[in-house]
Measured scan of single mutants.
Amino acid sequence: IINNLKLIREKKKISQSELAALLEVSRQTINGIEKNKYNPSLQLALKIAYYLNTPLEDIFQW
């Protein structure tokens, strides 16, 4: 999986903590996703895309 979450999140000036709060997950979860240590569920990936107002395929590429 190619993961552009960190790049997109930083472009939008959103911290890991802010995104985690919006998604109701821990900051460690966001960190793990960004470091490719954790693959989000489809539901979480869709929520990330929604809150970042970015197409899912721009954030994650399988």
Rank of each mutant, 00 (worst) to 15 (best):
A49E: 02
L7E: 14
P40Y: 04
E10H: 09
V25K: 03
L19G: 00
I8K: 03
E18R: 13
T29V: 15
L42W: 11
R27P: 15
I33Y: 06
N31M: 14
I8Y: 10
L52N: 00
K37Y: 15
K12H: 07
L42I: 11
I30Y: 06
I30G: 00
K12T: 07
Y50C: 11
L5D: 01
I2R: 12
S41D: 09
E24S: 13
T54C: 08
N39F: 15
K12C: 09
I2V: 13
N4A: 05
E34I: 03
I2D: 07
A20G: 07
E24G: 14
I1G: 09
L22W: 13
W62Y: 09
I8T: 06
F60C: 04
L46R: 11
F60Q: 01
I14A: 02
N53K: 10
I2Q: 13
N3I: 04
T54M: 07
L5I: 07
A21H: 11
P55C: 06
A49T: 03
A45P: 00
I8E: 05
R9Q: 03
I2K: 14
V25A: 03
I30A: 01
T54H: 05
I30N: 00
I48R: 00
L44H: 03
N39G: 11
K47G: 06
N39V: 15
R9W: 04
N4R: 12
I14G: 01
I2G: 10
T29G: 03
K37T: 14
I1A: 09
E18T: 12
L52S: 02
L23Y: 02
L19W: 03
L19R: 00
K37H: 14
Q61E: 12
Q28V: 12
P40G: 04
I33T: 01
Y50R: 08
D58W: 09
Y38H: 11
I59E: 00
I48Y: 01
L23E: 00
N4V: 04
I33F: 05
D58G: 04
Y38K: 10
E10N: 09
K11P: 02
D58Y: 08
P40S: 03
I2Y: 10
K12F: 05
Q61I: 12
Q28R: 14
S15C: 04
E10Y: 05
S41W: 05
S26A: 06
P55R: 08
P40R: 01
A45Y: 03
N36I: 04
S26H: 07
K35F: 06
Q28W: 12
N4W: 06
E18N: 09
K37I: 13
I8S: 04
Y50F: 14
K47R: 12
I48F: 04
K47D: 05
N31S: 13
K12Y: 05
L23P: 00
S41I: 05
S17Q: 12
E10R: 10
K12N: 11
Y38N: 08
A21S: 11
L56F: 09
I33Q: 00
L42G: 05
N53D: 14
